[in-house]
Design a protein around this nucleic acid. Structure first.
Lengths: 240, 240
DNA sequence: TCCTTATCTTTACATCGTAAAGATGGCATA
DNA sequence: TATGCCATCTTTACGATGTAAAGATAAGGA
């Protein structure tokens, strides 16, 4: 109260989440009044991660700040520190969630495929579709220098993503890929597939494919362009 | 270079120019005393761009701030504003320089090629080589949301990069590509080539190809992996 | 009952981008 | 030559951010 006048703790003025119920928080909280915001949040870590995802998809990567996330969750700006250490920690945990969503989307899409051609196209199409549906998350996962891959959750989720890709390539080549060693041909096949889909996605999200799309026959979508790319690449490699 | 000595990249902090001796420097500067830092820099815009490139390659994208560039150039922190407006302006002009370097590197590499296979491999190899030699610049050009493509210098340099790619693809397909309309096959060929090389570069710079490289036969380099990818992709498309 | 500990808030500080006002000197013009 | 305009650079100031540190509060065990 006094602080708002003296120091002006900024960001509180437009929102004032706690001032709406000024008596509920500082006073001894009635044991039953769980609807009011207690001093202890109880599940602040998860609430912060959900708030972070909302902020990310609403305001973009530049808007994803520790303080913005705290505001979105309705807690003090330093509250996230206790759960994530620093911004890198929060961002890395959120990226791990993204990788898990991402992996699940590709796996289910792959499972739904029936024909060999469908199977070959399912994963890359799901890859791009996820990025288009969650551009903020994809950007977080693949264009943030501020990720700490030594965190087990992120390391594991990203590793799983890579394993899924390697297995899909192995299945297409009909030579299951060992976890240990790769031939140069296998490595090239994996790197080529990943590079192409990843590059396509980045260029698409950055709007750099617009130059191409608007020169194509009217109405051609990015999905159709992707499919054309994939079919011409994959055709020769499928068992007839 | 002479300017860099006279002007000096030493920080302003230990100097305290105005407060201590208000009469010494603001006084009419003796015409011969060129060793002192003049009020007008003379070529500050170019000096700032060079300073920015140094800061970028030394401290990375996160270290590239307006104030750091000003410090590197030995001027006040607000000096860049007059020449570039804001950080977006500085970054965009620097990215334009990067695109021109980048285009020149690919063009000269392409010109030096003799055989059709060499010609097909030259540009992508130069692409990746530039990114490896100037990772900061490449990151600036391709992973910064803070670029203003409405700036003519940047727009033109990036456009020229795209045109070079399209022409190279057209030459390889032996069907010169018109500036206006593209068939879906042409668009797919361009997007595929660009996506693959761009994706490969991003993954390589992010260290995400390490998992593959360390599983390959010992000593395999990223360049060799790239070449394997390119050869398997390009082989079928070359005139025998 | 009391004390320890985890959780959250408050306060503080350095750095950043940016706006605005002041200082300086090059340059055209009289 | 003298004068005034104006581009250039500096100073000052403000809000926002990440982060550290200290204070406040609840929860749970001794």
């Amino acid at each position: 109260m006094a602080k708002s006048i003296t120091k002006g703790e900024t960001a509180r003025s437009p929102r004032s989440p706690r001032k709406t119920s000024p008596a509920s928080r500082p006073a001894r909280r009635p044991a039953a009044a769980k609807t009011e915001t207690p001093y202890h949040h109880g599940a602040l870590r998860e609430a912060l991660l959900q708030a972070a995802e909302r902020v990310l998809e609403r305001d973009g990567l530049a808007g994803l700040t520790l303080r913005a996330v705290a505001r979105e969750a309705g807690v003090s700006h330093a509250a996230p520190t206790h759960h994530f250490g620093d911004l890198t920690g929060l961002v890395s945990e959120l990226a791990a969630i993204g990788f898990r969503q991402f992996n699940a989307a590709m796996a289910s899409s792959s499972d739904a495929a029936t024909s060999p051609l469908e199977r070959a196209l399912a994963r890359p199409k799901a890859y791009v579709a996820y990025a288009q549906a969650h551009p903020g998350m994809y950007g977080l996962m693949f264009r943030t220098e501020r990720l700490d891959y030594s965190r087990p959750s992120l390391h594991e989720a990203a590793e799983s993503s890579f394993a899924g890709l390697a297995n899909a390539i192995g299945a297409m080549r009909q030579e299951p890929i060992s976890g240990k060693a790769l031939t140069i041909e296998q490595g090239a096949a994996i790197a080529r597939a990943w590079s192409m889909v990843h590059g396509f996605t980045m260029l698409l999200l950055d709007g750099r494919l617009e130059d191409i799309l608007e020169r194509l026959p009217a109405g051609t979508t990015a999905e159709q362009l992707l499919e054309a790319i994939l079919k011409s690449t994959v055709a020769a490699k499928l068992p007839a």
